[in-house]
Design a protein around this nucleic acid. Structure first.
Lengths: 245, 245
DNA sequence: CGCTCTGTTGAGAAGACTCAATGCCTGTGG
DNA sequence: CCACAGGCATTGAGTCTTCTCAACAGAGCG
């Protein structure tokens, strides 16, 4: 364990410079010297799919940046109903700086690579680096907008609209970032869902059976194709957009 | 009009110093000199109940601080379904700095007093005053947590739990801030709802009829009393908490 | 006193949920 | 390479909650 951590740090020493999200994460406003300091307080960590980083209700002692992979933020009622309240993608930020409590769990959906900080260390660093706080503020504002938009889906859309909207969002957010270079490709025609049917249900506020029925209905209608369990092909995007309302 | 604005500014000149939310709003980190500068770019504005400050889809040119009253943030689908995605209370912040688009409308629920800034002016000021950005970041993080918690309610709670949760939240958030002084009173036993039944439905993702039926059921069960159209008395708080799940 | 707006009540329909059974990949071990 | 177990997904039948549509009641106002 000790051994492993030292190795992680050693790897980490060189990794801020070479980090794949170096120019898109909140670190992008920092110069080389600042980056060195940040490097000292953070460390990289690998998560298996299904592994949790933070648990609901636990004291929030960690914050993190996602380097690779996807994670879910989930909240639940006492009686076991769960809702995924957010999905975190590479270069995005996880955690609640400047605060104690966490109201949700953070769990890896795929194998993931994150850059972890002790909250106290991060808070101190952020307080001294306004550029970083500014980036974080912009991100948080964007995330708030996105979350509010999702509220409309949860409360006012029916099962068909929810599933259609979800598939469209996935086809856009799973598109690799460098597609901007290969301009024109803003979304994927074929992709693998990083979610099980159960998890899709947890995102959309539906049961697993309803998700399954809606996906099958879309498939039967020729709007999408389902070549394998996790794979989706968007056959008629215009129709899917209509159904998303 | 010119006349009016000058008068507003004149009033405003004295009002930052005497502002009732001076110590709780994002301005609280600023010293007298900074406050003077902020004073120059902002102006106070009074809104009637029902009056809108920003419209959905419109370019976001304004940001504001709420001095008094309550406002709603609402989003809608093309076919007219509406969802209230947030409620803003005194000392809270409205708007999307550092960004173009607005995805929701801002409308006064009660008569309200707000301190308005042109977004460009505010952005510039914020960039030069990290303390203000820090306050704004904390607020935005808190709002994001609150919004995520509301998602759980929208997607996983039934009508009874939704209405019970709503009434409890109202009894807490409508409690005047100075109750901290009169320690122990964290919530109100009797209060006037700032929402119509329709608006409660829009907050909870329910129809007006369902809201009405649930309120009547709670009343019949002796958990609450409804002395008038807008008034609510919490008779058995423990029972109401149980029902909120 | 009547008008309008908001809220309440009722009956029926629709959508999603629950429970239960079946089918189909995937990975493991013979 | 095949057989089998376990997990995930699909399908079906029936129920329940909420919505929809429609009528009515009551407060507030001119």
């Amino acid at each position: 364990m000790r051994r492993g951590e030292i190795t992680d740090n050693a790897l980490n020493m060189s990794s801020c410079e070479t980090c794949v999200v170096r120019n898109t994460a909140i670190c992008s406003g920092l110069d080389a010297a600042e980056l060195g300091l940040l490097n000292n307080i953070g460390r990289q960590r690998r998560l298996e799919a299904g592994e949790s980083l933070v648990w609901e209700g636990e004291d929030s002692v960690l914050v993190a940046n996602v380097i690779d992979g996807m994670l879910k933020l989930s909240a639940g009622t006492e009686d076991g109903r769960e809702q995924i309240v957010g999905v975190v993608y590479p270069s995005e930020f996880i955690g609640r700086p400047f605060g104690r409590s966490t109201d949700y769990s953070v769990t890896a959906l795929t194998e993931a690579e994150v850059c972890v900080f002790a909250r106290a260390d991060f808070d101190r660093f952020a307080a001294e680096h306004p550029a970083l706080e500014h980036k974080l503020l912009e991100r948080t504002l964007t995330e708030l907008d996105r979350t509010r938009k999702w509220m409309l889906l949860l409360s006012r859309k029916n099962a068909q609209e929810k599933v259609a909207t979800f598939l469209l969002e996935m086809s856009e957010r799973l598109a690799p970032a460098d597609c901007e270079a290969a301009a024109g490709v803003q979304w994927l025609k074929v992709f693998d869902l990083p979610f099980s049917r159960q998890q899709i249900g947890d995102v959309l506020g539906l049961t697993i059976e309803t998700v399954s029925r809606q996906m099958m209905a879309l498939s039967r209608a020729g709007v999408i194709a389902l070549p394998s369990r996790r794979a989706v092909e968007i056959v008629d995007r215009a129709a899917l957009e209509d159904m998303a309302s």
